[in-house]
Design a protein around this nucleic acid. Structure first.
Lengths: 367, 367
DNA sequence: TTGTAGGCGTTATCAA
DNA sequence: TTGATAACGCCTACAA
């Protein structure tokens, strides 16, 4: 193993001072082209890379970004944070940053994690996920002057920091419009309890799209804590009602999966893959579905209720669920861009930037 | 914001030398108890934490562990690596290590990532996932003398490094035994193409359990690349055959989900949640299933074929799939333990340690 | 048991 | 345009 290549090694090999080498790396314009090229050649030949530890001691910059990795939770939705993390790692690498992970059971623990991480590794900044009303984290970081960006708007909180978010309302509106275009008139919304920021956001898109289409949303919505079982239960209640909806826009793939399970069980219409369809020979497809459609008139597609989820999770893909997809790569890139802006801006007085991205509908079998 | 608390600040505040403070932190036994307590109190009060950057310059240790974060892939199985990453972050924190992330599209890119990361951040070691035959990574790291542990055996490769793995064969064997106990005699195996290490491992557990139970495995297995659609297709072929299996042990939850989709479509028996069951009133449950069972005699539970997956992914939970669960928290802890052993052992001649953990069966609706 | 000196690799300052 | 020097915070000798 070649003993460590330091800036000294390069300087000696190139016959210049260490400072010149440093300049070639950090401020090339200060070095005469010939010298620069020569030194650069030596750097490449030796494979020299500045030590972050030493660099950090001088410059105070670690080129590290702290990110929390969340537990699997119900695992269906939590999944998008893992995908986000992957995208963020790539976006960070583009900007020569690395992601350091930490875990925390709740907001208080997370603030403790900031302190620990900051004191020992001094990351240059943080990317926060899952912001929510009364979130104590932004305030703490703001107080300490620690640079950060959030993936998620400051729901209700003071808007004093850079954030990136996806327009959930636009997503559910697109879903609703898709259903309207398919001939549905009574389109229900299956969401989460109010007050969660994201919950209200996604509901509002459905609501405005309904009104824009001249449809009456009254009585067509239900709210429940996230989960497949809960989705199935609520969907059963909603769809079985005499004048219930013929289609459902859901706030999550979990809820949608539950609803879709119900639809399939009710209609006996498990149409996911061609293989299944051809293999399914002995069954009399559609009887139950027809019985249902007779009592639910109104949808142009009378065969079965439509369901649309949110997040385009792997489950949705596997099961053929139509769903709203968040542009996670773009979100990640925007996070890095805004964070570097905050880093460079330093104490600058320019107001914090915001980015609101639009999700898109992925149409599959369920709607 | 309080200007940085260094070892000097503490020393002054406590009225001792910096060396004493350092000793209190790194070699408490060298300090007189009274002094130690006094200094410790000051440390706590000031919230002092040694700077990793400075510490690393002296000691050469960064207390950083490099881990690759994989893309979402088909997303259903890739998910377990995300869960592993979470557990690893926690286990590492226990041992005062942090996880630094990197991405890489393939093995060659990953080796490049080692070089970059090593040169700039000098992580103390790496945790490798997804080992496979002809994996060039362990050899490279071994050559460079970089400490590492793999989650995954060195399939076919030289066994010269520490590794942790889960006994896949034990998992499929347990699944098979469970089915045998339930009265199944023709138990099929739906796995991946041979040669992938993990593939052969999981197959072998099924095979040995079949033989141990005195059952003939001939013609009861199929192999296909992972995927839900592939699983559905293969399951259709296998289960529809006149003397086909009455139950399926699958190498993954993806395959199992596909198989289960087929089973449900065929039997019209979508029994996931109680809600669905009660809601499903109009349908005549079981006719198709009975028709099937007549032609497939042999299982004690004639109603429908049983399916068992592998990995206990969120999808499995959501859909009620019986599956084999890997003890990821234990794997993560073992990885950290072995890695620290390698770190401490340094050039020691003690042979690399191995840990093989046993998975367990999670019984749900599908078997 | 405690204190002092030196150096890890880098970059900022300043002089040449 | 380039080079010498100091300093970042810590830890390991070594001295007291």
């Amino acid at each position: 193993m070649p003993s460590k290549v330091t800036i000294r090694t390069v300087a000696r090999q190139a016959g210049v001072s260490v400072q010149t080498v440093s300049n070639v790396v950090n401020a090339p314009h200060l070095v005469r082209p010939e010298t620069r090229e020569h030194v650069q050649a030596v750097i490449d030949r030796l494979g020299y890379r500045a030590s972050q530890a030493a660099r950090q001691m001088r410059s105070g910059r670690s080129r590290l970004i702290g990110v929390r990795i969340e537990p699997a939770r119900d695992g269906i939705n939590g999944n998008i944070l893992d995908r986000f993390l992957h995208e963020l790692t790539e976006a960070a690498a583009q900007a020569e940053f690395r992601i350091v992970l930490y875990t925390a059971a709740d907001d208080v623990a997370e603030i403790q994690a900031y302190e620990d991480l900051l004191a020992a590794y001094s990351p240059d900044g943080f990317v926060l996920t899952s912001t929510h009303p009364d979130d104590p984290r932004p305030g703490w970081l703001l107080d300490k002057g620690v640079p950060f960006v959030t993936f998620g708007r400051p729901w209700g909180g003071p808007d004093r920091h850079a954030w990136v978010d996806v327009d959930g309302a636009a997503g559910t509106a697109a879903a609703t419009e898709h259903l309207v275009a398919a001939g549905h008139r009574r389109i229900g919304f299956l969401g989460w309890p109010e007050g969660a920021g994201v919950a209200d956001d996604r509901r509002s898109g459905w609501l405005s799209a309904m009104r824009a289409a001249g449809l009456d949303p009254t009585g067509l919505e239900r709210h429940v804590d996230d989960g497949v079982a809960a989705g199935e239960r609520m969907a059963a209640e909603m769809l079985a009602a005499p004048d219930g909806p013929t289609a459902l826009v859901c706030a999550s793939d979990s809820l949608a999966l539950g609803a879709w399970n119900y639809v399939l069980a009710t209609t006996g219409h498990y149409a996911s893959s061609p293989a299944a369809r051809t293999a399914r020979t002995a069954r009399t497809v559609g009887t139950a579905a027809n019985a249902r459609s007779r009592s639910t008139s109104g949808a142009s597609r009378a065969s079965r209720p439509a369901v649309i989820g949110f997040d385009d999770t792997p489950v949705a893909r596997a099961v053929g669920l139509t769903t709203v997809a968040q542009p996670l790569a773009e979100v990640a890139q925007a996070c890095i861009r805004l964070l570097t802006a905050v880093l460079d801006g330093g104490g600058g007085s320019s107001p914090p930037e915001h980015v609101l991205l639009t999700p898109h509908l992925v149409v599959r079998d369920s709607a």
